[in-house]
Simulated scan of single mutants.
Amino acid sequence: MATHVSSQLPQTPRHKPPPGPRLAPVMAAGRPGVGNNMTDTRAKTILKEAVDAVVDSFAKHTHGYGRVNVVEALQEFWEMKQARGIELKCGALVGYESVPSALPPYICYVTLPGGSCFGSFQNCPTKAEARRSAAKIALMNSVFNEHPSRKITDEFIEKAVADALQSFQGSAEESDNPSTGIGAFRFMLESNKGHTMLEFQELMTVFQLLHWNGSLKAMRERNCSRQEVLAHYSHRALDDDMRSQMALDWISREQEILGVIQAELSKAEDELSTARLAGRELRFPKEKRDILLLALSQIAPNESCA
């Protein structure tokens, strides 16, 4: 197996990887297990109402009270951020990706300038409607991300770490131990004070992928320290070179265990679909799917498709 220098933060084997940050609270309505008495239909209704409310509010502040072109509004939002001096490494252009399909419902993904990804969360009868649906959820999260509560502060860190300890049933001592998942999570948060949660999510996606890809074990075996891992990857963008290396790792696994890529791809696609319909940020599951499709295209070109 290829052992590209890549890893999640160092952890002891018994610990789970650090949890990812949560985005807008209304997203919880679409999460499995949240609100035992809430039906899927009700959760989707709440999500749609919340998204429409934010989009309408943004429209009133930028376009007056008429019907808003949400695709244009999302682009304008990021252009405004750039005009205010916010550094965007790849510019302010918002990217869209439609999933090839001959029949509805159509699916579209939107990638924001920083790398965060969202998808159409409704059953869309046309490709244009799928693009608007994706733009709506992305605009909602973009606007919500500007709220002071989404800035990483000391108070925010303490709350996030406490939530992680409860979710992972950890002990208080773990949060101060950088070799544990919770301790690494705290270190990452403290290293990103002043940033927003979307910015932090973009960074965390890299480390989540490196953990998922199995590179953590290779890093531990080479005795790489937490500081070395962070120094190497905290400022490195998730690019084609990194994706290609991860795909090679999965091709190596396929040579050892026949069918492992297809099995992992099925899980990634289910995860992506569930997260998309719930209105959640999608970069992690979408990157997993794309990396696995890339690996599959190298060993079975006729079987892989986006």
Rank of each mutant, 00 (worst) to 15 (best):
Met1Asn: 12
His4Cys: 07
Gln11Asn: 06
Arg14Glu: 09
Arg14Pro: 06
Arg14Phe: 08
His15Trp: 09
Gly20Leu: 11
Pro21Lys: 01
Pro25Lys: 12
Gly30Trp: 04
Pro32Tyr: 10
Val34Asp: 08
Asn36Leu: 15
Met38Asn: 13
Lys48Asn: 01
Asp52Ile: 09
Asp56Leu: 03
Lys60Cys: 12
Gly66Pro: 02
Val68Phe: 09
Asn69Phe: 03
Val70Gln: 01
Leu74Gly: 00
Glu76Cys: 12
Trp78Arg: 15
Glu79Gln: 14
Met80Ile: 02
Met80Glu: 07
Lys81Tyr: 08
Arg84Cys: 02
Gly85Ser: 11
Gly85Trp: 10
Glu87His: 04
Gly91Gln: 11
Gly91Ser: 14
Tyr96Ala: 10
Ser98Arg: 07
Val99Pro: 02
Pro100Ala: 15
Pro104Asn: 05
Pro104Phe: 04
Tyr106Lys: 06
Tyr106Gln: 12
Gly114Met: 06
Gly115Gln: 04
Cys117Phe: 01
Lys127Asn: 04
Glu129Trp: 05
Arg132Trp: 02
Ser133Arg: 03
Ile137Val: 09
Leu139Tyr: 02
Asn145Ile: 10
Glu146Phe: 14
Glu146Ala: 08
Glu146Pro: 07
Pro148Gln: 04
Pro148Thr: 06
Phe156Lys: 00
Glu158Pro: 00
Ala160His: 05
Leu165Phe: 08
Ser167Arg: 12
Phe168Trp: 04
Gly170Asp: 10
Ala172Ser: 15
Ser175Tyr: 00
Gly181Gln: 01
Phe185Gln: 00
Phe187Arg: 14
Phe187Asn: 11
Met188Ile: 14
Ser191Thr: 12
Gly194Cys: 07
Glu199Lys: 12
Thr205Pro: 02
Leu210Gln: 09
Trp212Phe: 13
Gly214Gln: 07
Ser215Met: 04
Lys217Thr: 04
Ala218Met: 03
Ser225Asp: 09
Arg226Leu: 13
Leu230Asn: 05
Ala231Val: 07
Ala231Arg: 15
Ser234Asn: 05
Ser234Glu: 12
Ser244Phe: 12
Ser244His: 11
Met246Glu: 11
Gln255Trp: 10
Leu258Pro: 15
Val260His: 06
Ala268Lys: 12
Ala268Trp: 07
Thr274Asp: 13
Arg276Asn: 03
Ala278Val: 14
Arg280Lys: 06
Glu281Lys: 01
Glu281Ala: 13
Pro285Lys: 04
Pro285Asn: 06
Glu287Lys: 11
Ile291Lys: 01
Gln298Arg: 03
Ile299Thr: 05
Ala300Tyr: 09
Asn302Ser: 09
Glu303Lys: 09
Glu303Asn: 02
Glu303Ala: 14
Ser304Asp: 15
Cys305Val: 10
